[in-house]
Design a protein around this nucleic acid. Sequence first.
DNA 1: TAATTGTATATTGTAGATAAAAGACAAAAT
DNA 2: ATTTTGTCTTTTATCTACAATATACAATTA
Lengths: 293, 293
Amino acid sequence: MARQNTVFKEAYNRCLGDLCGRDRLPSEPELGEKYGISRTTVRAILSRMRDCGLITWDKRQKIILRPPQDQDYFPEDETNSLNDIIEKSFMKRILTGDAEPGTQINEAELARDIGAGTTSVREFLIRFSRFGLIEKRPNSHWILKGFTMEFALELTEVREMFELRSAAAFATLDRDHPAWANLDEIEQEHLEMLADIDNRYKDFSPLDEKFHLLVHKVSGNRFVVDFYDVIAFIFHYHYQWNKAYARTRNERALREHLDYIAALRSRDSGEIERACRVHLRSARETLMESVPH
Amino acid sequence: MARQNTVFKEAYNRCLGDLCGRDRLPSEPELGEKYGISRTTVRAILSRMRDCGLITWDKRQKIILRPPQDQDYFPEDETNSLNDIIEKSFMKRILTGDAEPGTQINEAELARDIGAGTTSVREFLIRFSRFGLIEKRPNSHWILKGFTMEFALELTEVREMFELRSAAAFATLDRDHPAWANLDEIEQEHLEMLADIDNRYKDFSPLDEKFHLLVHKVSGNRFVVDFYDVIAFIFHYHYQWNKAYARTRNERALREHLDYIAALRSRDSGEIERACRVHLRSARETLMESVPH
DNA sequence: TAATTGTATATTGTAGATAAAAGACAAAAT
DNA sequence: ATTTTGTCTTTTATCTACAATATACAATTA
């Protein structure tokens, strides 16, 4: 098959979730906008909903007939894009320490294991190479450099350089810059999470990413922001598979963030640098502890 | 056709150049090592040389019969790898200002213009995206962000951060670290080029790259070194198509490098920072002047 | 016995094909 | 006068196939 209709299936599921508590659906362009898909895909979704007896659909009239049931949803594993499947499968190998640094990576073998075509795997590896974990020998194989202590140190060195600079730049933003409002919002989310930390400590990862991305973005430098992708990517998978002490670590990070946010708001450059360094140091330690050894 | 034999043709031409001034060729593995190719390709080269009457070849005996003539060489445009062709063609569009920032990039159209398959163009674009000049909308087109003033400023900002840090680290290297010997060598090349600047100013670009790469490498940080690739890439094409004032600019840069090298050797951190900043500022100006406007 | 060669096999680089998804535009509806 | 829809076209994502190139291993040579 040439391409899986995962965009359709994934959007269909999201759309089902929004079917409750209303009696009709908005226009096709509006739905496309809402779910981030084209009208072609919206129409495919509407067609299927009609065929399943979920709605009636006649031009502008899209009337909801019944709420969705479990069997209306597509199975979750059919909604992941091929790239996500490859990425997840590959990261599992690397971060759980299955594959030794220095190992050769074989495109065809990897493709076979994952159940994807070689082109897709190849494109994934090219995209992935910017994370510094693999390296290509032209006309020959890839080499796994591995999630090692050196990697963690090099990554955090650059991260600290960039974040200290971005944090310093934060203090110089106009009072009416939208970043201040975002900061308030993020602070609020921190407080809410801390108030119910026992149940919510697992949701920390996306909030962490949101906060640091905001800081990096004020650098106004695409290379700095792009580099934060690398950090976020590594931390994302790290949080997923390294649960040890998650509760303690995350609570500590939340409190450090609040201190950091207060420092930013003070616009005092010395204070910002201090708070930023404190947090970056513990982030580094967290990462280093997660290196397989 | 599935793949062009450019590796073979390019290595064949290099091998022809080494045919003069000797009467026999070394073993197959040795040749493979020398030209960076596999034995399979070495044997293909030897076969053709025999067929063309350049050598006799019987097992270990590879006797050279005659020096190569012009018609023995493959035409130069058959020796460029497909990726180089795509890269060059694409960079020409961007740097000469043909394509406006914000333009959509169409994979199929680009492939047709260049005369390559879509897969190769697609892979090129993925690799190229790390340079920050294009950006992908998933399931849709690429957008050309363009070689703009913002790009030049963001690029140089990071470059300066990284190079100042690497230069500072240079001073802390052991006396017997190989980088010092490399530095001496590079200084010598600078002096030679300056002595005959009128004729040799065009060869500055590779020397420039060699020097800065040496500095960046002592950081021992893969992200810093990888980022220098971006710089080198941009400067490479910039030197190729922007000849204005080349003579003046290059002579000035050579002198700044010599000053910078002397500062590194002094191991005086203040002096290093001064010399490094002086050169980085003029490098930034050079780049900014080359932005189409 | 260590390097080299002959031969067979495995892997990469690239083209071409096709379904999914995006996008364009005129007709229809508010 | 917009917005929405119906229809058609374009483009991307992905698979498969195959020549170029790399790699593995046994046979041969020095």
